[in-house]
Nucleic acid binder design. Structure first.
Lengths: 343, 343
DNA sequence: TTTATTTTTGTAATCGGTTACAAATTAGTA
DNA sequence: TACTAATTTGTAACCGATTACAAAAATAAA
């Protein structure tokens, strides 16, 4: 078991009879280095199998070229797409991602934020856990001027940029679409209203109702975690309602809840969309599998990830200032499928 | 904009009138430190808001407490679950993950492996890209004795551990199940046979046929990328076959292809399972949404991730030796749903 | 040729922990 | 009390790259 010793700039320096400082500069294309010398340095470096020691460098420069990412959970299609977008951008720009999940729990989010802080990430990308009430755990970042970019599940504050879609508008349009298609009693499957995304979707829903002169009915709001189980429970709730109290349309804040609600209702004999029309949110792969296919809001996780990473990196490189760019709103489109068009 | 200077062990040392060495030892529970002194050190560290500088530490110890992960793509449910499992274990053990995706391309996989190597990860977790032919790009790791653990898409070699399921057995059982349910001509939707997982599934399929005295028919093997598009194409292929050449059962190497193939066939009037029975692989969320629900192999990505990370970390901590533990086989179960039970 | 400039390279300190080895302190024993 | 052994703490070098400042070399101007 032979460990070949790592090649350092000193080895290169010795081999070229130069000083380590010159080698260091040469490798980084420092302007004061003679181009001929630089070429020699780079060539020998390659030849000797040199690889830069990022710790030595980070220790000295206090830059890590690492971005921390905290997501609610890794195993969701949307989050996976977001990460894919972030990864693409980051690698191109020479940054690495350290990824962690809060599992929707505040405590883990706090813990992860601490870890990221201690690992001295250059910046942080975060989507808040289901029930994070405040962002006190990010104060150390703000204090040290480490940029933080929120995406999707954001938090209003002046210290950082947020990447999101116009949830209000998307929800408004979706609700309007249901109304235009003959729905008169629309139930809304809502998420935790602490989270901007869910609060805004609810607002958009309410606004659309109001504009169509429909009185908002608290009994038609079903708040949950929006997971499979919640979808089933929502269906049970609907089935438990008296016939005249039942909704004839459902707008769910995500596809998972919508789809599983549909499944349960269908097995109970409810006909979709004629008895109850459905619309979801996210354009998850399952929305194209359920029958009838689910009308939903298409909202590219990949682009969210790209935008978030890009925004952070631009700030790190000094191109833009994070405090002036407060919010970036991405496009989201209503995709109309069979689940919402009554025949 | 005030940057408070970071607290170092020297600051703590000065404040306690001790040497930095003692502080360093105290913080790491070194045995030669007096418990009373240790307590004082830890208390003042907390009080002063000390956070250890991992670069200084890594520079000296040549350990990074970071594990590199390379996956084919981030945006799949299976991969996301694997990462969730890895993340859980790693964080508990004090390791961070650096995650990257090869996007199924060899070149990016090679590039990512280089980056990981340069970032000096303590170990590497990798699932190979769709068409990686060899693992030459991992040679630097082997040479430097940096442990590598393969998961799912593995590669046979003596240098590293592999985490997988018994694909052969799972495929055998699935095929047998279809045969037992009256299928006589079973088509197999295969993936790239360079990848162990797909090659073994094909072998299991073949073996089951043989044991049931059914002659293997090359025309019933449809090799593809197993994505949505491939599912549709497979359906088109089936529909293009003469009635007597059509399969009455399909065993797909993943759920995505199976489900989309089903969708297209259904819209062409094919009745599932009576005309054609279906079985997939992975237990993706869509398998529970498609109608009829898809029979599939349940195979916990989470556990794969856990096992892979644990195996690597145990090796790093010296608990086990990666060269002796060559393969870890995880449980996989056939879940029988309506898509395969003819009535 | 001499002096002033501009280019290019070198010196040495620094970043913050870690650790081999030495020194000092305390405990144990005769 | 004197001396040996065990605990505890300190000294100083080191990990490898970066950079302020100094010095040397090359070029231009007088």
């Amino acid at each position: 078991m032979k460990y070949e010793k790592d090649v350092t700039i000193y080895d290169i320096a010795k081999s070229l009879k130069l000083s380590a400082a010159t080698v260091s500069r040469g490798l980084r294309n420092h302007p004061t280095i003679n181009k001929h010398t630089r070429k020699e340095i780079i060539d020998t470096a390659k030849e000797m199998g040199y690889r830069s020691n990022s710790f030595a460098s980070s220790l000295r420069t206090k830059k890590t070229n690492t971005i921390g990412v905290i997501v609610p959970r890794l195993n969701s299609y949307f989050v996976a797409s977001v990460l894919a977008g972030m990864e693409d951008v980051s690698y191109k720009e020479g940054y690495n991602l350290i990824i962690s999940q809060s599992l929707e729990k505040v405590e883990k989010e706090v813990f992860n934020a601490h870890t990221m802080f201690n690992k001295r990430v250059d910046g942080l990308l975060i989507s808040l856990a289901y029930d994070s009430i405040n962002i006190d755990h990010l104060i150390p970042f703000f204090k040290k001027n480490i940029p933080v970019v929120f995406f999707d599940r954001t938090s209003q504050n002046n210290e950082s940029t947020s990447i999101l879609i116009d949830n209000y508008k998307a929800a408004y349009e979706t609700t309007k679409h249901l109304l235009d298609n003959g729905c008169t009693r629309i139930m809304h499957l809502a998420g935790n209203l602490l989270r901007n995304v869910y609060a805004e979707r609810l607002q958009g829903y309410k606004a659309a109702l109001k504009d169509h002169n429909i009185i908002f009915d608290e009994a038609l709001i079903y708040t949950s975690k929006l997971d499979e189980e919640a979808g089933y429970s929502a269906a049970d709730y609907i089935l438990s309602l008296q016939a005249d109290k039942r909704p004839n349309g459902v707008f769910s804040a995500n596809d998972t809840a919508a789809v599983h609600c549909m499944i349960r209702l269908k097995s109970a004999g409810v006909v979709i969309p004629n008895d109850i029309a459905f619309a979801g949110f996210n354009n998850d792969p399952i929305s194209k599998v359920i029958e009838p296919n689910l009308t939903t809001i298409n909202y590219s996780g990949y682009h969210v990830g790209e935008a978030a990473a890009l925004s952070l990196i631009n700030h790190l490189k000094g191109t833009t200032n994070i405090k002036t760019t407060n919010t970036i709103v991405l496009r989201a489109d209503l995709i109309i499928r069979d689940s919402s068009v009554k025949k």
